[in-house]
Design a protein around this nucleic acid. Structure first.
Lengths: 125, 125
DNA sequence: GACGAACTACGAAACGCTTCGTATAATGCG
DNA sequence: CGCATTATACGAAGCGTTTCGTAGTTCGTC
């Protein structure tokens, strides 16, 4: 089961986008997208913990370690989603999708994209 | 901002389904749906905390207090959803919906329901 | 070779959530 | 009335997450 915490997710996001990165890379990226200003050693510590949890892989051959995401973005998203479905939508993905659609301001093009996916799925059945 | 914790969400779920309830009601309902076996005073404490947080309202006129949800199910779901969208889907509801659709086993009838909603939305634009 | 800069490791504090034990008060029954 | 039952209130422990300071190590440069 993959259930990354908030901070972990933020770091995973960076790794998914950037690919293998050093602590400094990750730290810089985090500070760019939020002005929260979190300390360097905080990022480091989190990455160390994530290594223990097998959320990331660490290449320690050079002094400056290089981290890579060890869980895929799709899988993680899927688990977080199904977790939310269970906790807040009574286990119904449909309810979640309907809620998401009714409150999101999706563009017509996006709606069309969703419709296409639905047609595919219906075709397969 | 409404961001109920796990335990709080479970209790809210009971209140949404049952309407105004006593601690014992809530506790019994929780134990029915999960065999986790959480203590009575735990449920009580959580309800007290939720009262402070204004997640529930308490009617203390009779000795046995009666609790009611103070936040709506729809609003709460919406907030949790948008929170997840921000944290894990780069702010894109579309990405979330696509992910939800591609991994959920929705029935044709459900897919049809989604499609109908999409048509409505497109009509409005 | 010495010094400053950059890196990792680690301990510990702070915070929120969850859990429960215990204390205390009200209720109702015999 | 007195006692068992059933409430609420409250403190505190346990756990995970987040944060950072400090210590110690390695590297590059003069």
């Amino acid at each position: 089961m993959i259930r990354p915490s908030n901070g972990e997710l933020a770091i995973l996001g960076v790794l998914w986008k950037r690919g293998p990165s050093t602590v400094r890379d990750v730290h810089a990226a985090l500070q760019q997208e939020r002005e929260d200003a979190v300390g360097y050693t905080t990022t480091l510590k989190l990455l160390q913990i994530m290594t223990d949890k097998k959320l990331v892989k660490r290449d320690a051959r050079s002094r400056t370690h290089v981290y890579t995401a060890a869980v895929s973005e799709a899988t993680t998203r899927e688990q977080l989603l199904s977790d939310l479905v269970d906790r807040a939508f009574g286990g119904s993905s449909l309810a979640l999708v309907l809620q998401a659609l009714s409150t999101s301001r999706a563009t017509p093009a996006e709606l069309e994209q969703i419709r296409r996916l639905i047609d595919e799925r219906k075709g397969n059945k």
